[in-house]
Design a protein around this nucleic acid. Structure first.
Length: 267
DNA sequence: TTAAGTGTTGCTCT
DNA sequence: AAGAGCAACACTTA
C-alpha cells in the first residue's frame, strides 16, 4: 500500500510534529534499523527537534535539527501515526518518538519489511539511493517521461515501477495509471508514440494527485476514490469501470497486474 | 489444517 | 539489459 500517495499522507502526519522535541525514543531491536543498534539509534534521537518533513517517491525524510535526518521506508504495509497521550500503544510499533505532552509519533510496520535510518540530509540520501525524480515533481514532465521510455524494450509497467527512473509508483498505482492511459501493462517502453506518452504522463499526475486528495492509506481511502478508478475493482471478478467487462490479471516478476483486456489492448 | 497470496526492495543467476 | 526466483516478515484468504 505505501506508494507515493500514502507516504504523502504520512508526511502530513509528520509535519504536524514540527518543532517538537523528542523526550523519549524507543526503537525495536531487530529488522528495520540500518547502520546502528536500537539503543544507539534511540540515544541519537533523544533531544532532537523535529524539523521539516519531506518526501521523495516512497521515502519519507524527517529533518532533525542538528542531528541529520530520519529516513523512513514503509515497505509493504508500514504506516506513521500520531498517537494521543492517552492512546494505548498499537501493535507493531517499531519506532516511537514521545513528546513532552505525551503524544507519540509512531512508525508501525507489521511485516518488518521496510527501513528506518539516519542520514545526513534528504538531498544526499536521495542521491545515494540513486532515486529518480519524484513522480509529482514538475521536472518529471513529458520530456522526462519520454526519456525513461525511449530505447527500453522493458514493459512500460516495470519502467513506471523502477524507482531509479521515476520514484513513487508501485504495483497498485502503476496498474491504475496504465488503465487510465489505456495502455496494456506489457507494452514495450520504446513502442509508445507521442500521444500515448502524453496520455501516460497526464494519467500519472492525475492518478497520484487524486489518490492524495481522497486520503489514500486512510481507512476510507479506497471507497473515496472516483468510480472510474480501477483500484476499486482490483480483485478477482472485478469489473472494468469503463466497459463493464471482467478485469484480467497477469503475473510478471512475482507481481500481479490487474487490467481491462478490452480497454487496454496490446498494440 | 495447511498452503498460497500479498502493497517493497535487493540480491543472485541466467 | 532485463527477466526470474527468492528472501525478508506477519498476516489473510482459499
Amino acid at each position: 500500500m505505501p506508494e507515493l500517495p500514502e507516504v504523502e499522507r504520512f508526511r502530513r502526519v509528520a509535519r504536524g510534529c514540527a518543532g517538537r522535541i523528542v523526550r523519549r525514543a524507543a526503537a525495536a531491536d531487530r529488522g528495520l534499523l540500518k547502520g546502528t543498534s536500537a539503543a544507539a539509534f534511540a540515544r541519537r534521537l533523544k533531544g532532537a527537534r523535529i524539523g521539516t518533513a519531506s518526501r521523495h517517491g516512497k521515502q519519507l525524510l524527517i529533518a532533525l535539527s542538528g542531528a541529520g535526518c530520519l529516513a523512513m521506508h514503509f515497505g509493504t504495509n508500514g504506516s506513521l501515526q500520531l498517537l494521543d497521550a492517552d492512546e494505548p500503544e498499537p501493535r507493531y510499533v517499531r519506532l516511537s518518538l514521545a513528546f513532552a505532552d505525551g503524544r507519540r509519533l509512531a512508525y508501525l510496520n507489521p511485516r518488518r519489511i521496510g527501513t528506518v535510518e539516519l542520514a545526513k540530509d534528504a538531498r544526499s540520501f536521495i542521491a545515494a539511493r540513486g532515486l529518480g525524480p519524484d513522480a509529482l515533481d514538475r521536472r518529471f514532465d513529458r520530456k522526462a517521461m519520454a526519456a525513461i521510455l525511449a530505447q527500453r524494450k522493458r514493459d512500460v509497467k516495470s519502467i513506471l515501477m523502477d524507482q531509479e527512473l521515476v520514484a513513487g509508483i508501485g504495483n497498485l498505482y502503476s496498474d491504475e495509471i496504465l488503465f487510465q492511459a489505456r495502455l496494456h501493462p506489457q507494452t514495450p517502453g520504446d513502442a509508445l508514440d507521442r500521444q500515448q506518452i502524453a496520455r501516460l504522463l497526464a494519467a500519472t499526475k492525475r492518478v497520484l494527485k487524486t489518490a492524495i486528495t481522497c486520503g489514500a492509506g486512510s481507512e476510507q481511502g479506497l471507497e473515496r476514490l472516483p468510480r472510474e478508478f480501477l483500484l476499486r475493482e482490483r480483485r478477482r471478478g472485478g469489473h472494468c469501470p469503463r466497459c463493464g467487462g471482467t478485469v484480467a490479471t497477469l503475473k510478471s516478476g512475482g507481481r500481479t497486474s490487474y487490467y481491462c483486456p478490452t480497454c487496454q489492448k496490446r498494440r
